[in-house]
Structure formats: structure tokens, C-alpha cells
Simulated assay, not measured.
Amino acid sequence: MPIWINQRDGIQEIAVLLFNRFSNYCLANTVEPMRAANDALGRTAYRWRLLSLDGGPVTSSSGMQLMPDGKLSDMPGGDALFILPSYAYRTYGTPTCLDALRAAARRFETLAGLDAGSWLLAEAGLLIGYSATIHFDEFERFSERFPDVTAVRERWIVDRDRMSAGGATTAFELMQHLIASTHGAAISIEIAGLFMQGDDSERANAMQTPPGDRRVQRALTVMRRHLETPLTVAALARAAGCRQRDLEVRFRRAFGATPRTVYKQLRMAEALRLVRDGELSVSEIALRCGYADPSAFTRAFRVTHGAPPRDHRP
């Protein structure tokens, strides 16, 4: 069930709470997918602020000093608060910090522990009755220290209004999942492609899918190669090496959508890119995205992107 549902004016309001020795890598993997989603959508869908407990500067594990946008207690609230302590996290569980997190839980719709952030959420009593994960090095200590939390060895977990990811790479995967849950798989796949070089197969592999689900990845690769001449779902299933029903189940598990829906999202994402390039006519773009009828293409484009192609021209 998607948790990104409390949008204000269509914008997700996100805060990231940083502590000294935070991971630059984990922070970038949290913020950059939102920046890329804004670029891909052509509007501000995500807005974020970087915070510290006292509003003062914090220094990353690599020695980079960062001046936050403000103090946690001054932030009125938002859709999600990401907690990113990284190294020395166990020393941060002071009464002042834990009280601040408990107060924040009343202002933010969702709380997320990144890297070792789950430890602080658990210390504050904010994960009781929830499933959560943490960096694999700390998993045993975490599960023993907090018996009221269901510790699960997963890369990332979304459990109602709590989220957790065990490291920097998994933070990126979690952000992909959340963006896809709101804006569709095509945007998430496009974002994955921005952050890695390689062929279509590698780009498809970058998209978070159920572990070992190569059939979904194969189907995505085939879709991207056949935007101009769309294949049937049956043909996609054959190319992926499974039955049509099986492929539909796998896509619903991976993206919460059917293969047909994801395929259309990919075609409309490519259409938006071509429209913004401004080099091709609408008729030519329609053909490249699998529409023989420009009028049908324009209608589909308007439904997907909220306005006709001419409104997205540079």
C-alpha cells in the first residue's frame, strides 16, 4: 500500500535529519532520486529540507561540513522524516534526541530509519509492533536489543507509517519504490537509468524488483526495445520465459501494476522526453511511441501528463 498519500498541493514535503558522521552516499541516494523525479515529471513533486537537532552544522564521515536548513523542532511537519545517523549512532540516543523524535512522530506522516536510523527510532519506542531492518552489521544487536520490534533481514521495509533501509544502496532502492508507488514504474525505471551507464538490460536490472526476478527484468528490456511497435502481453511473457498469467502476477508484485500499464507508462515517459526535445512533430513522436493515430496519442499524453504535448514544448 503506497504511503505517499498526504500530498500538499501535489508536493511531497520531506525532511532528512542528519547527525555528525552521516554518510554522504546515503544522503545522496535519498535526495537525488527525488531531484531526478522532479526533473522527469517537469514539476516540483518533491521538496526536501536537511535538518539537524539543534540547527547547527553537521560534518559527514568524509569530513564535509553541511549547514542544514533548520532545526528539527522548528519544522512544522510533512509527509516523511528520514533519520540518517550513520556512524556512532548509539551515542546519539540521548533523552533530548529521543524526545525530539517522539515529538516529530506527531508532526510527520511517516518516519524512516536509513542505515542505522532504525536504532534511534527503536530507542524512542517508535517501532514497537512494526517490522524493521537495519544495516546488516548491526542486525543481531538490533534484534536482541529491541524484542518488541520485528527485525527482518530485508534490504528495505515499508510497514504502514514506518520505513527502514539498511544502507546507502538500499536507500536508493527504497526511494525508487516510493516514487514508483506514486508516479508509476516508468519514472522509477528512468531514474535508475540516470544513475548507471550500460545497456537496456543493465538499466532494467537497476530497477528494484523482487529478488532474482529475472523475468520481470527481461520483460522491461523487451518493452524498452519495442516502444515503437508495442508487443502483446503474451509476446512479452514468451520473451521473458514464462506464462502470461505468471508475468502479470510478477509485475503486480514488483510495481503494483499490470505489464500493460507499465508498458504504457514507459511509452508515455519516452513521449514526454521527445516532446521536451522539441525536434520532432507530434505525429512523429506518436509513431515512435507506438501510436498510429496522433489524436489517440494526444489524448493518452494528456491523461498521463496532465496537459497536451504543446504545453510541454521547450
Rank of each mutant, 00 (worst) to 15 (best):
A180M: 11
D200Q: 10
M207K: 05
G184R: 01
H177A: 04
S201C: 05
F195I: 05
E190C: 11
A192T: 14
S188W: 14
Q176A: 03
A186W: 13
T182K: 10
H183I: 00
L178C: 02
M175P: 04
Q197F: 09
T170W: 13
M175C: 04
S188D: 09
E173T: 02
Q208F: 15
I189V: 14
T182P: 02
M196H: 05
I179W: 03
T209K: 06
M207R: 08
S201E: 13
H177S: 03
E173W: 04
A186K: 03
A180Q: 07
Q197R: 07
A185E: 08
T209N: 01
E202T: 14
A171R: 00
L178G: 03
E173Y: 11
G198F: 12
D199Y: 12
F195M: 05
E190F: 15
F195C: 01
D199E: 13
T182G: 03
T170C: 06
L178K: 00
M175L: 10
F195D: 01
M196P: 00
D200S: 09
S181E: 14
G184C: 08
A171W: 07
L194N: 02
M196I: 09
A186Y: 09
E173K: 02
I179S: 00
G184S: 06
I179A: 00
T209R: 10
